[in-house]
Design a protein around this nucleic acid. Structure first.
Length: 631
DNA sequence: GGTACATGCGCC
DNA sequence: AAATGGCGCATGTACC
């Protein structure tokens, strides 16, 4: 069975193409529904403008998406396509009939973001023009019209044309300056990596995720009912305070109910940043309830708050979408996170229902399904990605050994310290599952922290002494030079790094974190997704990607293609990842990555802490409907 | 009435 | 909240 092929520009990436290749710079003006998103089929193209590197004058073309032969011809002659905010153009290229997998992009927005590293630089085209000193022709009238939401289709033709052509020339000028700097800084491979990911995201945004309507309705009704019950009971206890108000809740807890505020290990009263008494769940579950009324209130309150959050963030938007087909969309941003991880937001839209697709409650994942009968939702996860990433970056032999050892379970090891178990074996099952579960939460915390007063930190850092040594070296480097260069070339900056009064280095936790988190989730996952996407295209598969959550990729796959899909996944997430990291960054993964693949009609959900059953609103389960019983 | 901030919490 | 990092969103509140 064929696992397909990758295009040369993926399997054998050569970022120097950006310095010497033939390119076309493109800018499009469209109607403005949903900010001109190509996913809204009521949008239309107003004008396309482009300039070829082999021509002196730019070209333009009015008219609709089906008549862009001249642009398509030039794109087919180029090695890559340059644009500011390429994801937008990719969406429209799809509508032009261009196969996205055949177009290598260069995005000036991503270029600037990569140069910025973790610095919060402005990324709009005007700011870029200023930064690179290429003096953009500022068309104030056009800018103002755009800002006021006046559709370019209503503008005088000459105005649109000048605006669009002006942006093409500005983008080209920015590109030419920018690529020189990125080349000198050794950052072109990183930009290349980011640009490979863009068309995958453009398509993924367009697909959206499909809800399981009966399951969602069932859950919605059940929670509405429960919510009403809770509201009634709480009202009788509190006299009708607004439990969403931290102010009112604080007053109720600490004044009316007379709870004793919590204290830290130095016997200081714990407060929030602004000095108020905290009212979050952790605090509330730790407060000592001394009577029945107090206990009852705490239980009801916690449940009510979770339910209310589930409604506003998920159940209500989900229900609203059912009339129009039960599809939820999101927007992904490659230029938000300081670690260069992907970020996701709700799509601000009147047409599309949307949620933030990177954080739906895990217990509700089974409320999503494949949109067609006879298909599965397939999730691919990297297992222990950040631990492996840390092991590779610091070359720690013990991390490597522990990951390879089937008889070593790090959460059991963690539980051993936390609960003083005096275990002699750390294989999974050597301690109770409750102990393991409780320890799990903090197992990897010492990777991004170093507290000599905490037993687990000392234990962790003494076992993984090479990791400890290298991370300290990172911090010393930043203290000395104010920056840190990752093995893939990306530079992180902490210009005001200094030794604090208590002797620790400022930003030490960020310094310990960024490379480790960035390598696993910002470098590996996009490469794996890109390779999966290209291979699926190359075999003419009907399967497609619908989501990605830092160390996982979610797809919809026809049952008839499951076996082939699995093989392509294995290829993409292991061998292809190795190949691309080697060829693009000259990095070798000294610890092999491992993945978990699950395929089912509905998206894989969370397991219940109590009975270990996967939560599924469609099946009977002792924790059915009880949100806070779920891990 | 709008904006900015604080808090809390969902995910990885 | 003590006791890692990274995000975005909802809600309430303060302030102009």
């Amino acid at each position: 069975m064929s696992v397909g092929t990758l295009p040369k520009f993926v399997s054998n990436p050569d970022p120097s193409i950006y310095m010497r290749g033939r390119y076309v710079v493109v800018d499009l003006e469209t109607t403005l529904l949903d900010n001109g998103w190509a996913g809204n089929l009521n949008n239309s193209l107003v004008i396309a403008a482009w300039k070829c590197s082999w021509a002196t004058l730019p070209k333009y073309s009015w008219g609709n998406e089906f008549h862009q032969e001249a642009l398509l011809e030039d794109i087919s002659l180029a090695d890559f396509v340059v644009a500011q905010g390429n994801k937008f153009e990719y969406g429209w290229f799809n509508r032009f009939g261009i196969k996205l997998e055949s177009v290598l992009g260069y995005d000036t927005l991503l270029g600037h973001y990569v140069l910025a590293g973790n610095r919060a630089w402005k990324l709009d085209l005007d700011s870029l023009a200023d930064f690179y000193g290429v003096g953009a022709p500022k068309n104030k009238l056009a800018k103002r019209s755009m800002k006021c939401g006046i559709c370019p289709s209503q503008w005088p033709k000459g105005l649109v044309q000048n605006y669009c052509l002006g942006d093409v020339l500005t983008t080209e000028a920015v590109f030419l300056k920018q690529r020189q700097i990125l080349d000198q800084e050794g950052l072109l491979p990183v930009v290349y990596h980011r640009c490979l990911f863009t068309p995958v995201l453009a398509e993924l945004e367009h697909r959206g995720m499909c809800l399981d309507a009966p399951a969602l309705k069932d859950e919605y009704v059940k929670q509405r009912y429960r919510q009403a019950e809770l509201e009634n009971e709480l009202k009788t206890i509190t006299g009708g305070i607004n439990i969403s108000s931290t102010k009112q809740l604080g007053k109720f807890l600490y004044e009316d109910m007379q709870f004793t505020p919590l204290k830290d290990r130095f016997n200081r009263i714990i407060t929030t940043k602004s000095g108020k008494l905290p009212t979050n769940e952790k605090t509330i579950t730790t407060l000592r309830a001394t009577n029945k009324a107090q206990r009852r209130f705490l239980k009801l309150y916690t449940e009510a708050k979770k339910i209310s959050s589930a409604f506003s963030k998920f159940l209500t938007p989900g229900m609203n979408s059912l009339e129009s087909g039960g599809m939820l969309y999101a927007q992904f941003s490659q230029t938000t996170a300081r670690t260069h991880r992907l970020a996701s937001t709700k799509r601000r839209s009147n047409t599309f229902h949307s949620i933030q697709l990177q954080n739906p409650p895990r217990i509700y994942k089974p409320l999503f399904r494949a949109r067609q009968d006879g298909w599965k939702v397939v999730e691919v996860d990297f297992a222990g990605a950040e631990f492996a990433s840390a092991g590779i970056l610091t070359n720690d032999p013990q991390i490597k050994a522990d990951i390879a050892d089937p008889n070593f379970d790090i959460h059991t090891f963690s539980a051993n310290t936390k609960f003083n178990l005096n275990l002699t074996s750390f294989s999974k099952g050597s301690c109770s599952s409750e102990n393991r579960q409780d320890a799990k939460e903090q197992t990897f915390a010492p990777m991004y922290r170093d507290r000599p007063d905490l037993d687990w930190d000392v234990e962790f850092r003494s076992r993984y002494s090479q990791l400890d040594k290298v991370q300290r070296k990172w911090a010393e480097t930043v203290l000395r030079t104010k920056q840190l260069t990752a093995p893939w070339g990306l530079k992180f900056y902490w210009p005001d790094c200094e030794v604090l009064r208590n002797g620790s280095i400022k930003y030490v936790r960020n310094i310990y974190n960024y490379l480790v988190q960035g390598f696993a989730t910002a470098e590996w996952t996009p490469i794996a997704a890109v390779c999966l996407w290209h291979r699926l295209k190359s075999v003419g598969s009907n399967a497609f990607l619908v989501n990605t959550q830092h160390d996982s990729v979610v797809s919809e796959v026809p049952n008839t293609e499951l076996e082939q899909f699995d093989q392509i996944v294995q290829q993409s997430f292991t061998k292809d990842l190795d190949t691309v990291l080697k060829n693009l960054y000259n990095i070798t993964l000294t610890i092999p990555t491992s993945i978990e693949v699950t395929a089912r009609t509905n998206w894989k959900g969370a397991r219940c802490k109590v009975c270990s059953q996967e939560f599924n609103p469609l099946t009977n389960h002792e924790c059915r409907g009880v949100i806070n019983g779920i891990n």
